[in-house]
Amino acid sequence: MSPLWSAQMIAFFLISLFILACAVMMLSFRKVVYMALAVGGVFIGCAALYILLGAEFVGIAQVVVYAGAITILILFAIMLTNHEATEPEEPWTVRKALAAVGCFLLGVTLLFVIRGQAWPQGDPSVDVNQGMSNTLAIGEALFKSYMIPFELVSLLLTVALVGAVILAQQRKGDQ
């Protein structure tokens, strides 16, 4: 069986198609709630890709955090504020057409650069995790090599949380 038609390859194409379809739907929907659901689809598709690549921990975390928590959070935010909101149809302008051309050119450039390059091939006989399971290796990296950025992320989350409270509080005071 040629490598192009192995089961993994077919799964990859199907998942990619699903992700792209969800992303396009997210952009083309006019109702905010549908957009949030489409984003959820993108997240689930990405999780499937991660699992296909053998990164099961990242895949599950993706489902739990993004597809679960974040999509639901977005939905809650929409329901609590203005769930009837729809985006108005916008006509095509010269500016939008130019932006589309620019995006297309950027995409083509990226594609050519990526396809035109012989990428480094990993050696399948070397175990990058040194015998540990994926989850264990991630934990080791996170709490040993990446200790400092890990602690800084907690600082970042504090700032984001406090910032969100400040902005929301003032919005309430304004009304």
Partner: peptide, 26 residues
């Protein structure tokens, strides 16, 4: 920082605090 991850987290810390600082005026 001499690690791309650390550099990026530092950049985001600066950016997020700046976003709030700009928008904080009632």
């Amino acid at each position: 920082a001499v690690d791309l991850v650390t550099l990026y987290v530092g950049l985001e810390l600066l950016s997020v605090a700046s976003y709030v600082l700009v928008g904080v005026r009632r």
